[in-house]
Design a protein around this nucleic acid. Sequence first.
DNA 1: CATGAATGAGCGTTCATTCAT
DNA 2: GATGAATGAACGCTCATTCAT
Lengths: 203, 203, 203, 203
Amino acid sequence: MPIKKKPQVTPSPERRDELLATAAEVFAAQGYNATTVRRIADAAGMLAGSLYYHFDSKESMLDEILSTFLNELWEGYDAVLDAGLGPRETIEALVTESFREIDRHRAAVAIYQKEARHLAAQPRFQYLVESQEKFEKAWLGTLERGVADRTFRDDLDIRLTYRFVRDTVWVAASWYRPGGLHSPEEIARQYLSMVLDGIASRH
Amino acid sequence: MPIKKKPQVTPSPERRDELLATAAEVFAAQGYNATTVRRIADAAGMLAGSLYYHFDSKESMLDEILSTFLNELWEGYDAVLDAGLGPRETIEALVTESFREIDRHRAAVAIYQKEARHLAAQPRFQYLVESQEKFEKAWLGTLERGVADRTFRDDLDIRLTYRFVRDTVWVAASWYRPGGLHSPEEIARQYLSMVLDGIASRH
Amino acid sequence: MPIKKKPQVTPSPERRDELLATAAEVFAAQGYNATTVRRIADAAGMLAGSLYYHFDSKESMLDEILSTFLNELWEGYDAVLDAGLGPRETIEALVTESFREIDRHRAAVAIYQKEARHLAAQPRFQYLVESQEKFEKAWLGTLERGVADRTFRDDLDIRLTYRFVRDTVWVAASWYRPGGLHSPEEIARQYLSMVLDGIASRH
Amino acid sequence: MPIKKKPQVTPSPERRDELLATAAEVFAAQGYNATTVRRIADAAGMLAGSLYYHFDSKESMLDEILSTFLNELWEGYDAVLDAGLGPRETIEALVTESFREIDRHRAAVAIYQKEARHLAAQPRFQYLVESQEKFEKAWLGTLERGVADRTFRDDLDIRLTYRFVRDTVWVAASWYRPGGLHSPEEIARQYLSMVLDGIASRH
DNA sequence: CATGAATGAGCGTTCATTCAT
DNA sequence: GATGAATGAACGCTCATTCAT
C-alpha cells in the first residue's frame, strides 16, 4: 500500500504570521511558561486545539518567533559590520539598528530577554547560543578596535563595558512602546549620547 | 516604608530563612513559574508537602523573598537619600548601594527583575508598585536637581536618562556572581564612570 | 444470514472499495484505535476531512470492512455446511475455506481477531456476536457428529477441542502473508494433518 | 546549594502491585490504547493524577506488567530447558508451564498477545523481541531434536508446526478464566493430547 | 516536623468530525 | 469531490496543595 502524493497541507503564511504576532504579544506580556495555549487561542479568537492546525507545538511557535527575529536582526547587523566603518560609527550604527529592531519586533525582543538564557540549554535553541557568541564577538571586537585607536577610553574593563552597552540597549524593549513620543532613531541618538559621552556635564 | 509584616507564628525562624534562601536560588535559576515546589523541597532535603508546614504557599515564599529584599534595599536607600548629599554624590551612593544589594541578594534581585512586572498586577504584590514609584521619584528627583545645578547635562530626556541608569544598574544582577573578580564597589565605580563620563575618550 | 445493507447513496462504489481496502490495511497494521483518520487519508492521498464525503465515520469504515468480510465468509461456510459431507470432510472443508478467506481478506481477518471481542459489546456490531454463535454451532455440531460416529476421539472435552481448532486456524492470519511459499490450500492441508493426526510420530 | 539527601519516595510495593493488577485487568479487557488512565484510576478508586504518584506514565505501567510476567515465565521455562529432558517431555513441560503462567498472569498474557507486535518496535520494549527470539529458539530446537530422534513426524513444515503449537497454547489466554472447571494442568494435558496425537480416532 | 498518599484543577496536545468554499 | 480551517471533547500528565499518621 504505497502512500500516494500527500497534498500540501501547509496553511497560508499570512494566517501563521498573524497568529505568531498574537502569540508573541502574549508571551511577552506573561512570560512563555506562564502563557497557556488556551490564552493564545483566546487572543486569536479560536479554540486551543485549532492552533495545532498551524503549529506543531507551543514550543515551535516560540522557536519561530525567536528565529525570525534573529534572522532579521542579523541581516541588519551584518550589513553594518560589513560596511567597513570606524569603531565609533560601528557602535552608533549597531545601536541604531538595535532600536529599529526593538521597534519592529518589540515582543520578540522582550521574550528573548526573559527566556533566552534557559532556552539556550535545549538543543532546539542552540542557535540562541550561536547568535549570542557572534553578537559578543562583534561588540567586543568593535570596542577593542576603538580602544586601540583611542576612540574609546582604555581605563575601563572591556567586558564590563560590553555588558553595560549591551544591556543598556536591549532592556529598552521592556518599556519601549512603538508609536510613542520618540522614534527609534531619536532614542538611539540619546542613548548613544549617554553611553559615549556620559550624563555628567563637561565644565 | 516598612513593606510588610508576615509573622506566620512558626517555631524556628532559622529554618525558614534557610528554606527561603534555597527557594530564592531555585527561583532565580529557573524562574518562578518554572520552579516546582518539589524542586525546592528536593534542594532542601525534604518532601514537597513538608514545605507547607513552614509556608502557606509557593507564592508566600516568593512574597517573603521579595519583601525582605526590598525592605533591606530601602533601608540603604533611605540612609543615602536622607544624608543631604549633592546630586552627583547621591547618584554615586545609590549606585554603589545597589551593587551592594545585588551582591547580598543576588537571587532576590534576579527574581525581581524577571517577575516584578507581572506580579505587580496582583493586589498581594502591590508593594512592588509602591516601591517602584518611590524608586522612580528618588532617581528622577536627584537627576532633576543635578540638571538644575548643572551637574548633569540638560540636553537629555530626563525620563530616558532615568531608565538608562536604572536598567544599567539592575540588569547586572543577571550576570553578576558574588565572589568574582570585582567587588561590588569596584563594579559600581566602573559603572559610574561610564554613566557619568561616557565610554568615548576625551581628546 | 445477510449481515447488513449499508447503501450510503454515493456516486462511485469503486472509490469506496479502494478506500476501504486502504483503511483495512492500516487498521490491520496499527490497530483500529491507534489508527488516525488522517493516517488513512494520507495513505489514500487525500486530506482527513475528505474521507467524510465517502463515509459517515471511522467506525462505519470498520463496520463495512468487517461485515463485508463476514458476508463472504458465510457464503463459503454455508456452501460447505449445506453440502451434506461427513464430519471429517466438513472439518477439512471448513478449515480449507477459512485459509482461503485469510488469503483473500487478510487485513479484515487480522482486524477481526484483534477487535471483535470489545466491539461485540456495541449494538452496532451485534452481528459479530451472531456470527460467532453461528460459527460455534457449526463447529460444535460437526465435532459432535464426528464423536458420535467415532470419526473423532471421545476422550476430549469437546468445547476445548472446538476452541483449539478454531484458534489454531484463525491466529494464522497474524503471520500469514499472501503470495508466500505456501498456498492457502497447502497450509490448510498441513494444519489439518496436525489437528487430525497430531505431531507425534506413530510407531 | 548542594542537594541534600533525597528522602526515599518510592511508595510501598504492595500498593504498586495492587494498582498494576488493576491496570492489567483493564488493559486486557479494553486494549492498551483504548484504556484511559482515568479508567484505570476509576477501577482503583482514585483520581487519574494520583496514579502518577506511583508510576511515571501509563507506558511504564504496561512495561512493568509485561516485564514482570516475562521474567516469571522465563524462570519456569529455563528450569524446564535446563532439566535435560527428551523432546516430547520438554514440549509437555513447556506447555504445562505455559498454562500455569496463563493461570497466574492471565491479564498480562492477554495484553502480550494483543500488543507485543507493535510494542516491539519501541526501544523501551526491546526485551519483547529478545524474549520472542529466545522463545522461538527453544521451541524450534526442541521440535528439531524430536524430528531427529523420530519422536515427531518429519513430514511437516517445522516452522508451521512451531507456529501451530505456539498459537495453540497462548491464544488460550483469550478465553481462559482462572478458577474455572479445568485446572491449568488438566487443560495442558488435553491440549498436549490433541497436539501430539490429533483429534481423529485411531482405528 | 516530616512523610506518604491523595486531590483537583488545569495544561499541552490529539483527533474525529464539520462545513463553507 | 476535495480542501482548508476550524471545533470540541477527551487524553496523558503536572503540580500546588491537603491531611491523616
